[in-house]
Simulated scan of single mutants.
Amino acid sequence: MSGEDLGGANGLATDAVLIAGPTASGKSALALSLAERTGGIIINADSMQVYRDLRVITARPTPDEEARVPHWLYGHVDACVNCSAGMWVGDAAKALEEARAQNRLPIFAGGSGLYFKALTRGLSAVPPIPSEVRDAVRARLERDGPEALHAVLAQRDPVTAERLKPRDRARIARALEVVEATGRSLTDWHRDGLPPLLPPGRVRAVFLAPDRETLYARIDARFGTMLAAGALEEVAALTERRLDPLLPAMKAHGVPALMRHLRGEMSLEQAAEIGRADTRHYAKRQFTWFRHQLPEFVWVRPEEAEAWVVASPQ
């Protein structure tokens, strides 16, 4: 099926639209408007919005918004699961196939650069890690600390270890799990990758680039809105599950600080300020990451993005 067939009578001559940008930049609103305009389907490309436990704290689309057009891959993974980029790509491939079968334009929206990079450039073919290997590495991490495991990794996979900071708990654990489960380093696996689902020539890829100060003000205001909408109660329910603190859902922006508040370690306002600061720092990293890693995304001011997507030539 050609790109011209996608999107119905008001569709765009493209295989897909990719909407990236920093948190709180207006990605969801743009995706919703385009989906309504084209009869398209919105597919999540945010690594935290996949978790069903985290609707409010991750600013997932509201139930009313989800009722207006189809939203896929939102809240479909339990927080006890480590939804890797590879897992997401598998789900995205099925979503893309279904969108094409329905003759509807797929609109990927999110802020996770690795997801978009996997979508357009492919991904390493690392096989699933057996639970017993993962559990053993996590136990060693808790017992010996990240620096000790970094030293082990430096012997087993020196190339990867050189790229990681000695206290980067999650990435050190992941790299050690891979080499212990497969006997091959992450560097080796990255050389033997899976092909991209959407090669760059047939997509319209936009990065929403709002004014920094305006964006940071929106981030600060949105955190208060999320608290008013039940974010603290959502985090309390997650806390009750007593999940592994290394799981991605347990590290979503705002979650660790709110958990500390619930344990009586700080006030709610202190926790909220940490959550706001963490989110602002993340937004800054998103700007930097996309600029260097995915330069093919066209940077557009949010208020001009829809006109650019609709008018942009192939």
Rank of each mutant, 00 (worst) to 15 (best):
R60S: 15
R241K: 12
V206Y: 04
I107S: 07
G21M: 06
E213D: 15
P210W: 06
A277I: 00
Y115Q: 11
H76N: 10
V50D: 11
L164G: 02
F207V: 02
R68C: 01
W308H: 07
M250E: 11
Y216V: 00
D64E: 15
F207S: 03
M226E: 11
R68G: 01
F116V: 04
E142G: 12
M48K: 13
M226N: 07
A249T: 07
E296S: 09
P196Y: 07
D157S: 12
V310N: 03
F297N: 11
M226W: 10
R241Q: 11
V178C: 13
L186Y: 04
T214S: 13
L149M: 08
R291S: 14
G145D: 05
E177A: 04
L176R: 08
A148H: 09
Q270V: 00
G110A: 06
E304R: 13
R100Y: 03
R191F: 00
G193D: 11
T120L: 09
F223Q: 12
G90Y: 05
A231S: 05
R241N: 03
R138T: 06
R37A: 08
A109F: 02
T239I: 00
G39M: 04
A181M: 09
A154L: 00
E98L: 12
A101Y: 01
I42C: 10
G201V: 02
T58C: 15
L123G: 09
L246H: 09
A99L: 06
V179Y: 10
R242F: 03
D64I: 07
L32G: 01
A229Y: 03
K251N: 14
E142S: 06
R121F: 06
A9G: 01
V89C: 10
L153S: 03
G110Q: 05
R222V: 00
N10E: 13
G113C: 11
K284G: 13
A170Y: 03
A20G: 13
R171S: 14
E180R: 12
T288H: 14
W189E: 06
T288I: 09
A13R: 10
G40F: 05
R204Y: 04
D168I: 00
W88E: 13
A236Q: 14
R184F: 12
G111F: 10
R242Q: 14
R60W: 04
T62F: 01
Y74L: 14
R263P: 00
R301S: 12
A151K: 14
A257V: 02
Y51W: 13
P200M: 08
A67K: 11
E36K: 12
L294Y: 13
L238M: 09
R55A: 14
Q102C: 05
A29P: 00
L164I: 04
P128I: 05
N103D: 13
H253Q: 13
R52L: 02
E296V: 02
H261S: 05
P128V: 01
Q49S: 02
S2Y: 01
Q314H: 09
D188Y: 15
